[in-house]
Design a protein around this nucleic acid. Sequence first.
DNA 1: CTGTTAGCGCCTTCAC
DNA 2: GTGAAGGCGCTAACAG
Lengths: 333, 333
Amino acid sequence: MTVSVRDVAELAGVSVGTVSNVLNRPEKVSPATVARVTTAIERLGFVRNDAARQLRAGRSRTIGLVVLDVRNPFFTEVARGAEERAAERGLSVLLANSDEKTERELTYLDLFEEQRVAGILVTPVAENMPRLRLLRDRGIPVVLVDRESKDEAFASVAVDDVEGGRIAADHLLDQGRRRLAFVGGPVSIRQVSDRLEGAQRAVAEAGGTIEFIGTGALTVDEGRIAGQAIVAREPARRPDAVFAANDLLALGLLQSLVMAGDVRVPEDLALIGYDDIDFSAAAVIPLSSVRQPAKLIGSTSVDLLLSTTESDEAKRRHVVYTPELVARASSVL
Amino acid sequence: MTVSVRDVAELAGVSVGTVSNVLNRPEKVSPATVARVTTAIERLGFVRNDAARQLRAGRSRTIGLVVLDVRNPFFTEVARGAEERAAERGLSVLLANSDEKTERELTYLDLFEEQRVAGILVTPVAENMPRLRLLRDRGIPVVLVDRESKDEAFASVAVDDVEGGRIAADHLLDQGRRRLAFVGGPVSIRQVSDRLEGAQRAVAEAGGTIEFIGTGALTVDEGRIAGQAIVAREPARRPDAVFAANDLLALGLLQSLVMAGDVRVPEDLALIGYDDIDFSAAAVIPLSSVRQPAKLIGSTSVDLLLSTTESDEAKRRHVVYTPELVARASSVL
DNA sequence: CTGTTAGCGCCTTCAC
DNA sequence: GTGAAGGCGCTAACAG
């Protein structure tokens, strides 16, 4: 049923070693032999068995990527960046979705370890570091994505979220707003707490107030719920500006606010999100946001991962990008 | 460096066969031995090598899924459906993105074949059938996703796109519209041509006209471009209703139209999309759409794939879901 | 330049 | 209930 190198060798009248050479180092084989072997491969419909290669190599040619939410376009962009760079290096990317759940993250980490992946790219849910350290100690390179590593134990590619939070808040303050609200959660996600912290600092410096409105997840639905809560308040008690922890939340908020009818964006309430996903520019009231170089984050992660394998000091390398304000109609009069 | 069953066996004072049994059929081993082996596994930090298992088994425990566009939330929903069902069956899903390009599709198909995946779920770009037939003939189950198989050679899970097109157009006609436009492309994608066909039939029956406005891909950007083209026309020459081949296009269209200022949605132009992605309900002018049961499509595909392995007649099974109208503000006065 | 050979780590008979 | 042995398909020495 299944065609192996042995069958190919037999048909071509050469040895299996030669077939392997044709496959992997054709320049070491005479053109005539290459041709014979190639013909045999085609005639037989031979396809390499990757499992056998991996077993031999001791490691697979796949990189595992665990993200918080595949439905968030920001992460699919990161994935695309990683995928493209990996493809250039002859590797493929296995995309896994933790859904912000520690348990799911662990399941995928186990799976990846069983597969002896070439490396793991992960945006950890919470303080799940022991497992990651174990992975690293067992020889699997780990790179933290979109998350600076506090303990310096891992290479990481991140965006300065504290700075991003400050940028967002500063922008709202520059527009003359003073009663800010931060919508986001859970705070156990570092991105959320950092952005909040940056915003708080900006407000502390410029004068003004910032209240915290918690959400259960970073989704459109949760944004919608938070928006309804704001609309339900009497006008005087509403914030005059909202900074949402990501664009999904901001889009949900926007919908609730506009549907309510009596909250005008940006006149009554300026709104800014985070990530600058495609849908933000396409929103009918285009959404201001803080842009992160998503694709670049993905490709850089792969680069770091691969250099990690080479040198030891690379293991601790950290790349931090600075986010960028994208001001649109939702926050500018 | 790497710990194998042999090491575990040694430490536990048993043979490798017993370790294997503990791993795969613990009920066949005495509790005491199980305990000893388990302890040894933990002490050593043993992790199964999946490549070796696969090599032995001759097939992997992974399903390959090739979609047209990972950035389209419809497909990520399909993927989630597939993933969940696969997980229940102890399989994992490898998600690949063809970006509507035949070449990329072929690359992934090759990759999957080398990996001896348990099966392939694919939304083919175009008439790439010969390669798929080959795969199937070599023993890899193939299920066509979101695409009815014309030649009956493959199992498939689809939504009746002709009917969906009719539903969309009928809805617009019911609203009293008569000068329709269909925005979408390329028509080499079956979903596009089918939806167009359904719409054309509906128009033919009810009276009215429908023009075709082609796009290069099914993306927000292309929708925006098409929208600008419509806005550029003098008002009398604009359609009074637009049916977009998917929600991404519709969202892009919506943005162009609204930004233009002089086209009111739905008063001057009613708009309906297709897929009912999350962002559609969240749009500030909520978008009407034709809903497809995305998650169900994914999970059913996996079911079909697995039953394909069991019986031969299952190979030709076809599941067709009927889409459903979701009328929102963008098309209803 | 080509052939031979020895495993990679696991699982599954087949004996005991 | 447990142990020993063979082999899945491939590649990288090492000979020739």
